[in-house]
Design a protein around this nucleic acid. Sequence first.
RNA 1: GCGCGAUUAGCUCAGUUGGUAGAGCAACUCAUUUACACUGAGAAGGUCGGGGGUUCAAGUCCCUCAUCGCGCACCA
Length: 728
Amino acid sequence: MNEPNIDPKLLKPYDSKETEDHIYKLWEDSGFFNPDVCIEKGVTKKDADPFSIMLPPPNVTGVLHIGHASMLTIEDIMVRFARMKGMRTLWLPGTDHAAIATQSKVEKILEKEEGKRKTDLGREEFLKRVNKFAQESHDTIVSQMKKMGTSVDWSREAFTLDDKRNLAVRTAFKKMYDDGLIYRGHRIVNWDPKGQTVISDDEIVYEERKAKFYTFKYSSDFPISISTTRPETKVGDVAVAVNPTDERYLEYIGKTYIVENFCGVKLEVKIIGDDAVEKDFGTGALGVTPAHSQIDAEIATRHSLPTKQVINEYAKMTVGDERILNKKTTEARTVIVEWLRTEGLLEKEEEVTQNISTAERTGGIIEPLPKLQWFINVNKQIVDRDNKTLKELMLEAVRGGGINIIPDRFEKVYYNWVENLRDWCISRQIWYGHRIPVWYKGEKIYCGIEAPKEEGWSQDEDTLDTWFSSGLWTFSTLGWPDLDAPDFKTYHPTNVLETGYDIIFFWVARMILMSTYLIGQIPFKTVYLQGIVRDVQGRKMSKSLGNAMDPLEVSQKYGADAVRMSLIIGTGPGNDSKMSEDKIRAYKNYANKLWNITRFVLSNTEGIIYDENFSLYEEKEKILIEERDNLIKEITKEMEEYKFYLVGEKIYQYTWSRFADVIIEESKDIFLNGNELVKNSRAQFLLNTLVKTLKVLHPFMPFVTEEIWSMMPVQNKKLLMVERWPNL
RNA sequence: GCGCGAUUAGCUCAGUUGGUAGAGCAACUCAUUUACACUGAGAAGGUCGGGGGUUCAAGUCCCUCAUCGCGCACCA
């Protein structure tokens, strides 16, 4: 190498540790993450098309995992691409209070560190602790996001539980209440005895477990045998239902039997015929327990049967004598089975595998209980919306083509879910969250955005399902309910929602519900669903398995650019991907390759004044230019189609195997033996190609490309993050 | 029970409207003050899960089976 007059940094291998922090600071200080600043400083046209993404707010339950890193990378690629195309680009960050998840996390810590329960502290003091924890998590998350190179507009940062979002929540609730979409009802709900709260159908996780399926009679003179996996609930039976066409039982339908002593409990059992009962299942007869089974409750309603609650909120029995009273359901089950056995009533005992319902957050086994709760009616016609129901609005938004889901097979999954949707239970018996904006005074109920002025009203103790506020996210972040808020008018509907396919129901569907109903707009045009990042063996990463990869740790070790590339390449939408350190290492090498390409190009083109519009190319370069520009065209198209995994691989391929291994190799000879015209043509080509490569690669590897850009001999250059995407 | 996805080189994955299989990583051979060892050159590696069909032509379209994974429903 001749005495190079290039940046001495280039003489050493690329060091991400010395680069990434100061580059991020450069971006932040520039203000270019904020689209308003881009307009002010003249890098974006005032009337350019807007492009907006709302960051799926990470839960303030701790730290970011590799899945978050993947989310941040994909979205950052979309956003940087849009920004470089000159769009008015807003990527709005935030965090989610995650109500039940955060509360149970803090409860665990409290229990472990101080041996206290939340009730020992009281609502106010406990919430202080939760807020403190949430704040600390938030700060960690923010610093992690910065490490990954996330180009979000921090000046607009939002939190699902801050004042502005609270106003949005109260406004939305009140409107739904006034429209009769939100109602209070006494229903069988999913009760989580561990979390001491109701949860929605979607927060249930089914676990396969072995169970015993018992067949027995209530008493020796009872005419019909029934089967159950939960004998303890049978003390709450009020009927036996059979299929009305089942000849075995026809003669009994309509009769009522008194069972004087069913393990110490008196039962009054009516025999009824109901189509919901399958002849072939079990004995073809079903003991009806209206208080503790959804289906039984429905049957009971059809036949005007009474409801008899026998299990309480702590999953303990509320009837019977000392053998079962106040015992846990599982203990009572053993007692009752023993009793059946000694009485000679137990006819059969089979091993079965059954799906048991557990609470997603606490792992508690769900106990169906009758309770007074708040619900959203998804089947009520809405006058303001052409008499459509929420369900219909949700279906229409996707069916009508307004919202495009990538990959499209998830559209089917979405329809299926919406079609089977039941009323959404939105009240939670937890302290952390948006308090329900309803006040009571005697028999009177008041729902309002603000508390009633007069004395004597007390607010509902419950809080809202965290997904209620998340459902408002695309517009509560933009100034809604102020319909004239400039951000709302400019950036809604948002362009893309990028999130994991595992929360399509929880979140994507709820956002569509809220947005179409409250503002009559779709919340986003495109939904890009990403898969789960797994370990090399294909297992889900988790702390308990010890296979979790800390995005921060690997970014520190290999550079955030390398981590980003490895999260993109080989990762299509909707598919799970596998991560390994080997893969990351390969892209760390790639960052260094770029570095050395730059060293070669700059040290061999010294004295050349780079001319972007250089036209005196030799034939050889013309061919190379065509090849390169065709690739960029292809890549640009694939970027528009969200095929980032292809683009990443193609640039990698081109820069390494083509540009470095072939073009640079042959350039050595040209620079050594060529005449001035030939050398000049080649030098301009190398510089021009490096410039374009850096631009195209920037959304993927923003740090190293920005750092190299700062050393490029380009006149009047801005930061690479706001340079224009190659326009061919 | 209904539905979805996957199955391509040792591993991770591409493979657009059908035109005789590609990349990265790993392993192998060779090269060694080279822009870069965070390197280069080379070679090797696949009956595209099985079977059937459509077609001049199938990894690609259709049917079927298998294995793995997932979602929903059921769960008396």
